[in-house]
């Protein structure tokens, strides 16, 4: 079975973000970029399925600027066999990415597509679900366990009250949650080998789609400044403040 894994290049999750002074967007100049953490979990899951003998080939895919090839190389170093880069400098949002991925699913015919549940930059949590709709495939979102059994896959999903298990027919779309697995580090020899693995570059025009977003980013602001705390002298004062100032208890 072939597995398609989608990855996204985002700001490294350790970096503290800054909003541009003109409030047009978040400042990404000279900022360390990395693979989205949920996408790393997706790659790791695909690699583990291959190690178990369930998967035979892993294709890593990304949609984005030229620099996103770094993240594809990371995926190749972690164990993907080949990569496809849909190159565009447009601001791609979930629907555009899902359309590009849907075309690749049509071309590649994978048995399973694994994506991160959300990217830590736009926090949209949409692409996997949209891809499922566009391809007409079933979806298992927020997966904390994935078991492939014959022509079906059982996905345990992290839902608000606990865990839900659903069974999907293959091919299917799975999006990963944090507890699915703990991704490995790439080893240096694998990183060197990854440089020689095949990486195809396509454009949205090659796929016959448009990826530009219809949602306009009007303004980006920093969140409201957090007020400093105060020390209270007595429990009574604390209770009074909680009741009358913060209004959290009544």
């Amino acid at each position: 079975m072939k597995i398609l894994v989608a990855v996204k290049r985002v700001i490294d999750y350790n970096v503290k973000i800054r909003v541009k002074p003109d409030n047009s967007d978040v400042d990404l100049t000279n900022v360390k970029m990395a693979m989205n953490p949920f996408c790393e979990i997706a790659v790791e899951e695909a690699v583990r399925l291959k190690e178990k003998g369930v998967a035979t080939e892993i294709v890593a895919v990304t949609v984005g600027p030229k620099a996103a090839q770094e993240q594809l190389r990371t995926a190749l170093a972690l164990g993907a066999d080949r990569a496809i880069h849909v190159e565009t400098d447009e601001r791609v949002e979930s629907l555009g990415a899902a359309k590009a991925l849907a075309k690749l699913v049509e071309e590649e015919q994978p048995g399973l597509v694994i994506l991160g549940k959300q990217a830590i930059d736009t926090d949209n949590n949409q692409t996997g679900q949209m891809l499922a709709a566009l391809t007409g495939l079933p979806q298992g979102t927020f997966a904390s366990e994935v078991k492939v059994e014959g022509e079906k896959v059982q996905v345990t999903r992290e839902i608000d009250g606990g865990l839900q298990t659903v069974e999907l027919t293959l091919p299917a779309i799975v999006t990963t949650d944090l507890r699915l697995n703990e991704p490995r580090y790439a080893k240096l020899p694998d990183i060197m080998k990854a440089k020689k693995k095949p990486l195809d570059v396509k454009t949205p025009a090659d796929l016959g789609i448009e990826v530009a977003s219809k949602v306009k980013l009007v303004k980006v602001e920093p969140p409201a400044e957090r007020q400093g705390g105060v020390k209270v002298d007595s429990v009574d004062e604390l209770v009074d403040k909680l009741k009358n100032e913060a209004k959290v208890i009544s």
């Binding site: 692409t127 709709a133 979102t141 999903r157 219809k214």
Partner: peptide, 23 residues
Amino acid sequence: ASTTGKNVLPRVAALKDVAQISE
């Protein structure tokens, strides 16, 4: 924006060929 809403609505949006706005 619960796990139910987040699971279902992007799928609706894609079926209608529109974007979704989250949370």
